[in-house]
Design a protein around this nucleic acid. Structure first.
Lengths: 218, 218
DNA sequence: CATGTCCCTATGCAACCGGATAGGGAGGGC
DNA sequence: GCCCTCCCTATCCGGTTGCATAGGGACATG
């Protein structure tokens, strides 16, 4: 639905007026150099934000944009919840920009309605193509991510709730604390920890947390 | 000692010939956009590598460089061991480029002879200044990292045995497994876990393991 | 030698974790 | 409607963890 709007919007501005996109990343160096690169290579107007909240308020003030690019690990992103918030607020396409390019996240992002998944391992000129692709309303996913999707050792599919628990696990919270935080019973937390550990092939919560950090699952 | 050589070398080429630096990062997008930015803003010749081994062989072939910038999380880097390898090979200054900018790493890098620590949160123009600073033979450390250095929680001093335990903790091993592995009693492991958690200000073993990974203590 | 640090061990206990087992309810897909 | 997944809850129990207390031995430094 939002996607449909995005297509129409993208097409309507194509003739004549300036296209503009928003890039959000907390690494100034990365964000600004990428923005600069796009400014030179395209005639797209680039705006930048340094956190999700920053991006949301800028979008609210100056939006909508033809495309919003969100860094996956950025203040307030809270995993892919930040993606949901941005998609809910804006009418245009929203894509995820990720440094570590974890396999699971790409799928999940797309399932949640992302317009694409842009790993930072991408070649600069491929980025230009990707951005124009997404502005045109298409979904962009690089081949290697696509490939990793099928096979790969990390075809770990966690449910939203499991991800909630896992994220808190990586903060060193106890089952009791997690239960209070999520407003569920402690037994339920244990259930999630158990299934989650099985999915990750972890020996215990600590192992699960470390694997999660390594695979960048949260 | 190597530093001394670097100064002389840097000075000798200053008059006349082209200065060149090597940037190594596995994220094409980040590496190339940063390289491009530097090419425009300075008259420095920029070469790039996509892994440590790549950087080492390029340095071996085309080096030495006025500066080598190594991404902290890159294939073959193996923490700061990669830094040591590059410092051992080249005569010029070597600096660490880091996205996550964990407090402990900066100090350790400098102790190991790095010419600087460049977080990716740096503003692009500050990068130019930092690079020129380091080419001139100075040590570059941004203020915020410097500040975190004095106080902060990163003045954690673990005993060898605590480090042994911590390393196994980050592998998700249980007290019993650790005890068997180190050939000590389980109670002793508990002791180390307790003191180690106190030093790290961790709530439990999982938290300790995560903090250890973040601070790169093992 | 006295002090301090590090490493090890022991006992005991409360709290927590991990797992099994056994359900109920909400919602999507066919 | 039926099947499926996801989410939640409950009870029970053995194993693990966290912590306090109370030591001993090795070794270095002032």
């Amino acid at each position: 639905m939002d996607r449909e709007l995005a297509y129409k919007f993208g097409d309507s501005v194509k003739e004549g007026s300036m296209k503009k996109i928003l890039i959000a990343d907390d690494h100034d160096l990365v964000r600004e150099t990428i923005a600069d690169y796009l400014r030179q290579q395209t005639d797209i107007e680039i705006e930048t934000a340094c956190s999700l909240d920053d991006a949301l308020s800028i979008e609210n003030r100056n939006g909508p944009y033809e495309l919003v690019l969100l860094d996956y690990s950025m203040p307030e992103m809270d995993g892919l919840n930040g993606l949901t918030r941005m998609i809910a607020q804006t009418t245009g396409p929203v894509a995820i920009l990720s440094g570590t390019a974890p396999t699971g996240v790409a799928q999940r992002a797309l399932r949640m309605g992302a317009a694409g998944f842009v790993p930072k391992t991408l070649a600069p000129n491929a980025l230009v193509a990707a951005v124009e692709h997404m502005i045109a309303g298409e979904i962009y996913v690089p081949e290697d991510v696509e490939l990793q999707r099928g096979r790969g050792l990390s075809e770990v599919k966690l449910t939203p709730r499991e991800t909630d628990v896992l994220r808190r696990l990586t903060d060193g919270m106890s089952n009791k604390e997690i239960a209070r935080d999520l407003d569920i019973q402690e037994v339920t937390v244990k259930l999630h920890v158990k299934t989650l550990s099985r999915k990750l092939d972890a020996r215990n919560r600590t192992h699960a947390a470390m694997l999660a950090r390594d695979l960048d699952l949260c």
